[in-house]
Computed example of a mutant assay.
Amino acid sequence: MASLTSREPVEVRQLGGGDTAAAFAVRLDDGAVVFAKTAPPSMPGAIEAEAASLAWLAEPGTVAVPAVLGHSDRWLVTEHVEAAVPTAAAAEELGRGLARLHAAGAPAFGAAPPGGPADAWIGLAPMRNETAADWPTFYAEHRVEPYLRRAVDSGALSAADGAVVSQVCADLDRLAGPVEPPARLHGDLWSGNVHWGADRAWLIDPAAHGGHRETDLAMLHLFGCPHLDRIVAAYQEVHPLADGWRDRIALHQLFPLLVHAVLFGGGYGAQAARAARAALRAG
């Protein structure tokens, strides 16, 4: 890890983290503190994908993203940001910045970040970045359907509920709302990947790709987020969402719910089925 920063670690403190990696705050010999994480061998390419995602999200300069200081196939070293209490002002800045990030665009739906692998990850789940001509095709073929098959095969989703999800895929042209250009997405923007610093919110652990901007907003709604109303209101000031976007939240939550159903079981399969039915009713 020292070779990644050209400085020697003198103190290492393990941090609490998610279920995908071990994370550490590392004090270097010049007094600087950096953040370091390592991915398990079962997730090949995960570090490469995250480093490329962070660089791509940082490129427009619209949102706070930890700077990548170095990486290898096993280690990622970034700027360290001390956690702080979420504030309304930081939430509003995040909303405005997220709107501008999305507007920075992507080459295509499903496009990976420059230098990033097509085979990436969302949490512990593989996520293939394969381009498509339009968002309904991309979302059905490269997000929903792979996990739909796994959820039904594993018993996390009944065959009857699986048929409802399949109907959503068949009707996506109708359900997707107004056509929009590919947006530059964080891609896994649940509340745990919004890191609140002293004066602003930082985006971490991205699964970036070209997608529909409503997806990031739907992810923020999935498990709740501090000051979410402020985030959305500030977003709307900069780049208003298309009419009916709230009715499409369930549609955009379908993929992460299917991923959770496959990985964790429990009630996520039933929740995915409810989201599919809600998407069909809203359309």
Rank of each mutant, 00 (worst) to 15 (best):
residue 5 T to M: 10
residue 5 T to N: 02
residue 5 T to C: 10
residue 7 R to I: 06
residue 9 P to F: 09
residue 13 R to D: 07
residue 13 R to P: 01
residue 23 A to T: 14
residue 26 V to I: 08
residue 35 F to N: 05
residue 44 P to N: 08
residue 49 A to H: 03
residue 53 S to W: 04
residue 53 S to L: 07
residue 54 L to N: 08
residue 58 A to S: 14
residue 64 A to H: 14
residue 65 V to Q: 04
residue 68 V to A: 13
residue 74 R to T: 15
residue 75 W to F: 14
residue 76 L to C: 13
residue 79 E to W: 02
residue 80 H to F: 15
residue 81 V to G: 06
residue 84 A to G: 15
residue 91 A to W: 09
residue 94 L to T: 13
residue 97 G to Y: 06
residue 99 A to E: 02
residue 99 A to W: 01
residue 100 R to V: 10
residue 103 A to P: 00
residue 108 A to F: 05
residue 109 F to P: 07
residue 110 G to V: 14
residue 117 P to G: 10
residue 121 W to T: 01
residue 122 I to C: 10
residue 124 L to D: 07
residue 131 T to D: 02
residue 137 T to V: 12
residue 138 F to T: 00
residue 140 A to H: 06
residue 142 H to W: 03
residue 145 E to R: 15
residue 147 Y to T: 09
residue 147 Y to A: 03
residue 153 D to R: 15
residue 153 D to Q: 14
residue 153 D to I: 10
residue 155 G to V: 13
residue 157 L to T: 13
residue 159 A to F: 04
residue 160 A to T: 14
residue 160 A to L: 11
residue 161 D to G: 11
residue 167 Q to L: 13
residue 168 V to T: 02
residue 173 D to M: 10
residue 176 A to H: 04
residue 181 P to F: 11
residue 182 P to S: 08
residue 182 P to L: 08
residue 184 R to F: 02
residue 184 R to T: 08
residue 185 L to W: 00
residue 185 L to R: 04
residue 188 D to A: 03
residue 190 W to V: 08
residue 190 W to S: 03
residue 194 V to Q: 02
residue 200 R to I: 04
residue 209 H to C: 13
residue 210 G to T: 03
residue 210 G to I: 03
residue 219 M to F: 03
residue 219 M to T: 00
residue 221 H to I: 00
residue 229 D to S: 14
residue 230 R to S: 13
residue 231 I to Q: 06
residue 233 A to G: 04
residue 234 A to C: 11
residue 243 D to M: 02
residue 251 L to G: 08
residue 262 V to H: 05
residue 262 V to I: 14
residue 273 A to P: 08
residue 274 R to I: 03
residue 276 A to F: 09
residue 277 R to T: 06
residue 281 R to I: 11
residue 282 A to I: 05
